[in-house]
């Protein structure tokens, strides 16, 4: 399961998380009803939570960390504590349910990834920039010109800008191959602020704008995205 301690929230993670816990709750309730000897409710909850504790390997699937549980450490710990007692057999099913919960979380992550990709496609600029009404421009580098933001164009281009390849080393070399190192322009001297990513996507972004206003480079925690168009989102361009 993935925790997200961030201001922007990821709706899909929250929904799948709630679903996963709901399934665990239902299973626990069924086990509980089947048993002849009733444990106290809080003991059941503790047994499940301890059972969740496991040794797992992290696997990077499509830029998302997926946890694959391997060793049921929590179950073993509970066994060490309670195993010799008569009542172990009543705890056992809940401890294993806890370990099994890891697989429920795993499946919920596997479901969340394609849903997230479908609702928040990475090849559409509007995933990263919505609420452009309060947008404004900041000069990040002295080579930035005094060209204000053309908000009308920006709103129009949100729908039409196309994703393009990032030529990171080429861009870097172009800026840095000068004989006089302190004389240099920056390819992306502006920052677009006052916007937010699409509601519920949970995406944090830094948005850079190209010097001619025709390209947008977006940094997210996972990777960068580059969009380009024929028109400029800055006023007064050629």
């Amino acid at each position: 399961m993935e925790f997200n301690f961030d201001f922007s929230f990821n709706v899909i993670n929250i929904v799948t998380g709630i679903l996963a816990w709901g399934i665990i709750g239902i299973l626990a309730y069924r086990f509980y009803n089947k048993q002849s000897v009733k444990l106290k409710g809080w003991k059941v909850i503790v047994a499940i939570l301890v059972g969740i504790f496991s040794f797992s390997i992290n696997w990077n699937l499509l830029e998302t960390m997926v946890k694959i549980p391997l060793l049921p450490l929590g179950v073993w710990i509970l066994y060490l504590v309670k195993g010799r007692k008569e009542r172990w057999k009543y705890y056992r099913s809940f401890a294993w349910l806890g370990f099994f919960a890891n697989f429920i979380f795993l499946v919920s992550t596997l479901i969340a990834i394609p849903v997230h990709h479908a609702l928040y496609p990475e090849d559409e600029l509007s995933t990263f920039i919505s609420n452009a009404e309060k947008a404004s421009i900041i000069h990040l580098h002295p080579s930035a010109m005094d060209r204000p933001l053309n908000k009308g164009n920006l709103l129009k281009l949100l729908k039409t800008m196309k994703p393009e390849k990032i030529y990171s080393d080429q861009w870097y070399q172009e800026m840095n191959t000068n004989f006089e190192p302190s004389k240099s322009n920056e390819r992306f001297p502006y920052q677009l602020t006052g916007t937010s990513s699409k509601w519920g996507s949970g995406l944090d972004t830094i948005i850079y704008i190209e010097e001619d206003g025709k390209g947008v480079l977006i940094s997210t925690p996972k990777k960068q995205h580059y969009f380009h168009s024929q028109d400029s989102i800055l006023e007064g361009g050629k």
Binding site: L140, K165, Y167, S168, S219
Partner: peptide, 10 residues
């Protein structure tokens, strides 16, 4: 996956 970090100098 390519990443380019523009120079920031304010």
């Amino acid at each position: 996956i390519e990443t380019y970090n523009p120079r920031v100098q304010m």
